[in-house]
Design a protein around this nucleic acid. Structure first.
Length: 575
RNA sequence: GCGGCUGUAGCUCAGCGGACAGAGCACUGGUCUUCGGAACCAGGUGGCGGGGGUUCGAAUCCCUCCAGCCGCGCCA
């Protein structure tokens, strides 16, 4: 640190946009005070990133928005704002561009200083404080433990897990949860199917129920139980199965699901049993009591209904069937009641397959009826996945039980590529998963392009270290080449990318950003080849310059590793 | 029938009120005796499903039509 000079706290990259917004707003105020602009309301948040980098790093549309109220041409308004704009260390002089934009370019010295800032912040670079002090829960996958996870569940897993990581980066304290449907009809049918397969192993005639699970995995589970417990669950013909058999089967299925997810890089903080909602004086009883108290429960046709039509829903919905058993809807109400009250999450995110979208509004209505602000619940829907191979759609037939499992996908393309491809598309878009492209270990595959950049970064640092060269003592002011500054510019976008992902609850900008960052690095790294100038290499004869560039390399590596980490992908040092 | 999602470059998809519409793949032509070529540079490609409207400005908002998918059980 240079001594003697006044230390002004540097504007961190994560606050740049807001900082520029403030600069523009106060410039407008001063312009008004000076009589260069008439009295007008000051627009908020006018600064954005222009699509075209030649327009600068940021641009304000304030003049375009004010023109009408100010009764002046937008260009004149822009000039007036520019005239009064206070400059600081972050930007160069703003430029006015037709039809009335105010364009900002980050100052080279600011960019250079950010390299040191990244090195100082390390893995916490790009952390935000949006969620500081708040607790969030992300519940995802939550597939019925009645069969193996399929490819669609993989999409939900990638989205949910990455969203959780993004929330953590934004300062939230996050819990990842899997809701286990171990109660209800599906679990019963599963148990019946399992008992049928189990009996078959002992040579009995037994048929799986019409709506049962025909997949071969049910035979495997039955075999596993026979191997562990012999004929303990065999009952006289015609009798209902031992409830413990079903439980044991579900436990086995769940363990398989857990192993698949682990392989995919997903770890849960909690596996929440649906059945546990029904404990005495538990969430189910409490939630229903509260709804009854508030007059939202009505008995009709022998069943108990939630009077959701009074609350704007298209119809009422059954919560307790006429046979006395609660519906899944009742479970979900109780489950969410428990999330908000007993566990006190500030924010709850459910990641669901789009086939459940009809349930979204109903659940939010119920949450509201329980006195909880429905805005605290965000339900993220993702569309179905189609697999493609050789340009042909891989047909998925659920009937025959020959779905493509997530395990099979992981066998074929590996977790890193699978996650990258799942994350690339916005959740709302149906996606085609191109197996051919995902498997390719070549430049055609964006996954390797990104990871390769990380490996190259690592390799440079290592090679330098072998020559006794480290970033230590490098002077970032030596970083003045266009490719160097372009790389820094790209690095500084990460906090904004994270903020955007978190506020929209959608992680899909991450892969594109990873690609952009990798591109900026590759261009920087190969500039010397392109320009035929060996002095542009990181490791040159100029030791001080080398150290400065090693700082840039080390900082870029930190940022790229962070992005890969957020996506749940590995950041290899060699490939 | 009602409701939701989707329709953007040859393919897969971003962009969702602002500056000539972008990325990856595919395609074409170059670079470099390579700090790892799984690299770099350059190039063409569409005017955003059709129509109407709002706006200084629309792929982005509104209306309508068309197409695909999903939902509308005392299944989850």
């Amino acid at each position: 640190m240079p001594g003697g000079t006044l230390e002004v706290p540097m504007i961190p990259a994560r606050n740049l946009r807001r900082h520029l917004d403030t600069l523009v707003a106060s410039a407008i105020e001063r312009a008004i005070a000076a009589g260069d602009l008439p009295e007008v309301a000051i627009p908020a948040e006018t600064v954005e990133r222009p699509k075209d980098p030649s327009h600068g790093d940021y641009a304000s549309t304030a003049a375009l928005r004010l023109a009408r109220a100010a009764m002046r041409p937008p260009l004149a308004v822009a000039e007036a704002i520019a005239k009064h704009l206070e400059r600081d260390e972050t930007i160069e002089a703003p430029r006015v561009a037709p039809p009335g934009f105010l364009n900002f370019r980050l100052a080279s010295t600011y960019l250079q200083d950010q390299v040191d800032a990244v090195l100082r912040e390390g893995a916490t670079f790009a952390d935000l404080d949006l969620g500081t002090g708040k607790r969030a829960q992300v519940e995802f996958v939550s597939a019925n433990p009645t069969g193996p996870l399929h490819v669609g569940n993989g999409r939900g897993a990638a989205i949910g897990d990455t969203l959780a990581s993004l929330l953590e980066a934004a300062g939230y304290e996050v819990e990842r949860e899997y809701y286990v449907n171990d109660a209800g009809t599906q679990a019963e049918v599963f148990a019946e199917t399992l008992y049928a397969r189990y009996q078959q192993l002992f040579g009995r005639e037994a048929e799986i129920p019409p709506e049962g699970y025909p997949g071969a995995y049910m035979i495997e589970i039955a075999e596993q139980i026979r191997a562990e417990a012999g004929d303990r669950y065999l009952r006289p013909p015609g009798e209902a199965p031992d409830p413990e058999l079903g439980e044991r089967g579900i436990a086995i299925m769940l363990e398989r699901i857990r192993a698949t997810l682990e392989r995919f890089g997903v770890r849960y903080d909690r596996w929440y049993s649906e059945r546990s909602l029904y404990r005495p004086d538990g969430p189910y009883e409490q939630a229903m009591a509260l709804l009854r108290e508030r007059g939202f429960l009505v008995e009709r046709e022998g069943a108990l209904w939630f009077a959701s039509s009074e609350l704007g829903e298209s119809k009422d919905n059954v919560v307790v069937r006429s046979d006395g058993r609660p519906t899944y809807y009742a479970s979900d109400i109780a489950y969410h009641f428990e999330k908000f009250t007993e566990r006190g999450f500030d924010l709850v995110i459910d990641v669901w397959g789009a086939d459940h979208h009809g349930h979204v509004s109903r659940l939010k209505t119920a949450v509201g009826a329980l006195g909880i602000d429905p805005a605290r619940l965000h339900i993220l829907l993702y569309q179905l996945v189609t697999l493609k191979r050789g340009g042909e759609v891989v047909r998925l037939s659920k009937r025959g039980g020959d779905i493509i499992t997530l395990d099979e996908l992981l066998d074929e393309v590996g977790p890193d590529a699978a996650r990258f491809f799942f994350l690339q598309r916005s959740p709302g878009a149906q996606m085609d998963f191109d197996l051919d492209l995902a498997v390719k270990q070549s430049n055609e595959n964006p996954v390797y392009y990104v990871q390769y950049a990380h490996a190259r970064l690592s390799s440079i640092l290592q090679r330098a270290a072998e020559q006794g060269l480290t970033p230590e003592g490098g002077d970032v002011r030596r970083l003045d080449q266009p490719h160097e500054l372009a790389l820094v510019r790209e690095m500084l976008k990460l906090p904004e990318v994270i903020e955007s992902c978190v506020t929209t609850f959608e992680p899909h900008p991450l892969p594109q950003y990873a690609l952009d960052l990798a591109t900026a690095f590759h261009a920087f790294n190969d500039a010397f080849k392109q320009q035929g100038d060996p002095l542009l290499k990181v490791i040159t004869g100029d030791e001080q310059l080398s150290r400065a560039r090693l700082k840039l390399v080390a900082a870029a590596r930190i940022v790229l590793a962070r992005v890969l980490g957020l996506m749940g992908m590995s950041a290899p040092d060699r490939m």
